[in-house]
Deep mutational scan, measured.
Amino acid sequence: MDVFMKGLSKAKEGVVAAAEKTKQGVAEAAGKTKEGVLYVGSKTKEGVVHGVATVAEKTKEQVTNVGGAVVTGVTAVAQKTVEGAGSIAAATGFVKKDQLGKNEEGAPQEGILEDMPVDPDNEAYEMPSEEGYQDYEPEA
């Protein structure tokens, strides 16, 4: 019985440690998101679009440190934060509304985080759909 109880105690310690790591990862992701939003706020009209992409990228980098179902929630929060940063930029006159959601080359930025393969159960990952990809044929 002692062996059984000791095993359960060790398992509990492992769960607590994993929860603490997840909590730490979420806190880091939130900190990076805040950094990115402050970065966007300090940019001029020309830099705002690039700044919004930076927020998304920093958040995406930190999301990889967070495991399990938390990833889905962090990704949703990050996307809403990026959308909010863009709205703030438009409201303050840093950028025109028609410039939001495009990178410096004018290509749409939507789907940055949505296409990231995420499995809350950590069982399997699927690649994003290939609808947006084109076949590449090298020139002879």
Results as ranks from 00 to 15, higher is better:
residue 1 M to P: 00
residue 3 V to Q: 03
residue 4 F to R: 00
residue 4 F to Y: 09
residue 4 F to V: 02
residue 5 M to W: 07
residue 9 S to R: 14
residue 9 S to M: 14
residue 11 A to F: 12
residue 12 K to C: 11
residue 12 K to R: 12
residue 13 E to W: 04
residue 13 E to F: 05
residue 14 G to D: 02
residue 15 V to G: 00
residue 16 V to D: 01
residue 16 V to T: 07
residue 16 V to N: 04
residue 19 A to K: 02
residue 20 E to K: 02
residue 21 K to P: 00
residue 21 K to H: 03
residue 22 T to V: 07
residue 22 T to W: 15
residue 25 G to I: 13
residue 25 G to N: 04
residue 26 V to I: 15
residue 28 E to L: 07
residue 29 A to E: 00
residue 29 A to Q: 02
residue 30 A to V: 11
residue 30 A to Q: 01
residue 33 T to K: 00
residue 34 K to T: 02
residue 34 K to E: 00
residue 36 G to H: 15
residue 39 Y to H: 05
residue 41 G to M: 11
residue 43 K to E: 01
residue 43 K to Y: 14
residue 43 K to N: 02
residue 44 T to P: 01
residue 46 E to L: 02
residue 47 G to P: 01
residue 49 V to R: 08
residue 50 H to F: 13
residue 50 H to N: 10
residue 51 G to S: 03
residue 52 V to E: 00
residue 52 V to R: 01
residue 52 V to I: 08
residue 53 A to V: 09
residue 53 A to H: 15
residue 54 T to F: 15
residue 54 T to M: 15
residue 56 A to Q: 05
residue 56 A to I: 14
residue 57 E to P: 02
residue 57 E to F: 10
residue 59 T to F: 15
residue 59 T to L: 04
residue 60 K to P: 01
residue 65 N to C: 08
residue 66 V to T: 03
residue 68 G to P: 06
residue 68 G to M: 15
residue 68 G to Q: 03
residue 68 G to R: 06
residue 69 A to N: 05
residue 69 A to E: 02
residue 69 A to P: 03
residue 71 V to L: 10
residue 72 T to D: 12
residue 74 V to Y: 14
residue 75 T to S: 07
residue 75 T to H: 14
residue 75 T to W: 15
residue 78 A to V: 12
residue 82 V to D: 02
residue 83 E to R: 07
residue 84 G to I: 13
residue 85 A to Y: 10
residue 87 S to L: 12
residue 89 A to Q: 04
residue 89 A to V: 13
residue 91 A to N: 08
residue 93 G to Y: 07
residue 93 G to L: 07
residue 95 V to Y: 15
residue 96 K to C: 15
residue 96 K to E: 13
residue 97 K to I: 12
residue 97 K to L: 09
residue 98 D to W: 14
residue 98 D to M: 05
residue 103 N to F: 09
residue 104 E to D: 09
residue 106 G to K: 08
residue 107 A to G: 11
residue 109 Q to W: 15
residue 110 E to P: 11
residue 110 E to N: 10
residue 111 G to K: 09
residue 112 I to E: 06
residue 113 L to H: 08
residue 114 E to P: 12
residue 115 D to Y: 09
residue 115 D to W: 05
residue 117 P to T: 09
residue 118 V to C: 12
residue 119 D to N: 05
residue 119 D to S: 03
residue 120 P to Y: 05
residue 121 D to E: 11
residue 122 N to E: 12
residue 123 E to G: 10
residue 123 E to R: 04
residue 124 A to Q: 05
residue 124 A to D: 15
residue 124 A to C: 13
residue 126 E to C: 13
residue 126 E to H: 12
residue 127 M to E: 15
residue 127 M to G: 03
residue 129 S to I: 06
residue 131 E to S: 14
residue 133 Y to N: 12
residue 134 Q to L: 10
residue 134 Q to H: 04
residue 135 D to F: 11
residue 136 Y to P: 09
residue 136 Y to L: 10
residue 136 Y to R: 10
residue 137 E to I: 03
residue 138 P to D: 07
residue 139 E to N: 12
